[in-house]
């Protein structure tokens, strides 16, 4: 098993007010079987033993689904592979590498400490309309409305977004269009989403703009880093849905 000696340049920032800077740490004998976050654990154990404040970073499930982990590694959100940071393993690096680790950068994602950012803007976008307004206790049988398999599958492909924010981090405009389009697409495709179709897309886009995300310039960087491979088709659909809703919805 290969062991790696690494130099880490890590963004350190005390709190949301403080000014941050990069610190350099050396780390030796890291097993290539370790995940990237396990490598960060080793760094933190090392720092803690030296009574230095460990590096704060967001992480939780460590199996690529919760969407909590959020670092930019060597200039790419979630690192060199198209996956989440927790699913990145050290075998993707070489002995002697210098690895730069930065927080996701976006005005709408303020840094709270070190590599931890506040992504509650995403929650607020969902709150603006990312749901089907049904109360608990519906009695319509689940098989009442058949949904063609390809439509269900496509809705699932959109719904698979984990809300990690890598799309925003990768986009040169810090645009959240891929995130918003994934949710809008899911409900646009499904029959259950139809009644609120126009209302939803307008409200979600308005909230997205209010949060201060940039505009989509169709570079495709978002989709290229998305751990769940959400496609740009969703963004086209969002544009279409939004413009149609604005032009055809009844409210003036």
């Amino acid at each position: 098993m290969r062991k790696l000696n690494l130099t880490l340049k890590v963004w350190r920032q005390k709190d949301d007010k403080g000014k941050g800077k990069f610190e350099t740490y050396k780390l030796n004998n890291v097993s290539e079987e370790s995940s990237f976050l396990e490598m960060m654990d080793i760094l933190n154990e090392d720092l803690a033993t030296k009574k230095i404040d460990p590096v704060a970073f967001d992480h939780d499930c460590r199996e690529g689904i919760c969407g909590t982990c959020s670092m930019v590694i060597n200039g790419k959100p979630h690192g060199p592979l198209q996956t989440t940071t927790c699913q990145l393993h050290m075998r993707s690096f070489s002995d002697g590498d210098t690895i730069t680790v930065e927080p996701f950068r976006a005005g709408a994602f303020p840094v709270l400490k070190d590599l931890v950012v506040d992504r509650s803007a995403f929650d607020r976008i969902i709150q603006a309309g990312g749901y089907v307004s049904v109360n608990t206790g519906v009695s319509v049988d689940a098989n009442e409305i058949p949904i063609p398999k390809d439509i269900a599958d496509e809705a699932m492909d959109s719904a698979t977004c984990i809300g990690c924010g890598a799309c925003v981090a990768a986009c040169k405009n810090a645009s959240a269009m891929l995130f918003v389009s994934a949710k809008v697409s899911q409900f646009t495709l499904l029959p259950q989403g139809q009644p609120e179709r126009h209302r939803r897309v307008q409200k979600m886009v308005a909230q997205m703009d209010e949060e201060g995300f940039g505009a989509c310039t169709n570079t495709g960087a978002c989709s290229a880093v998305c751990p769940k491979e959400i496609s740009l088709t969703n963004i086209a659909r969002l544009n279409r849905e939004y413009l149609t809703a604005k032009v055809t919805a009844q409210e003036v």
């Binding site: 749901y131 089907v132 049904v134 519906v138 319509v140 689940a142 058949p146 949904i147 063609p148 398999k149 269900a152 599958d153 809705a155 699932m156 719904a159 899911q186 409900f187 499904l190 259950q192 989403g193």
Partner: peptide, 8 residues
């Protein structure tokens, strides 16, 4: 009803 895309 909530729009969970179960397999079909």
């Amino acid at each position: 009803a909530q729009g969970v895309p179960f397999a079909r």
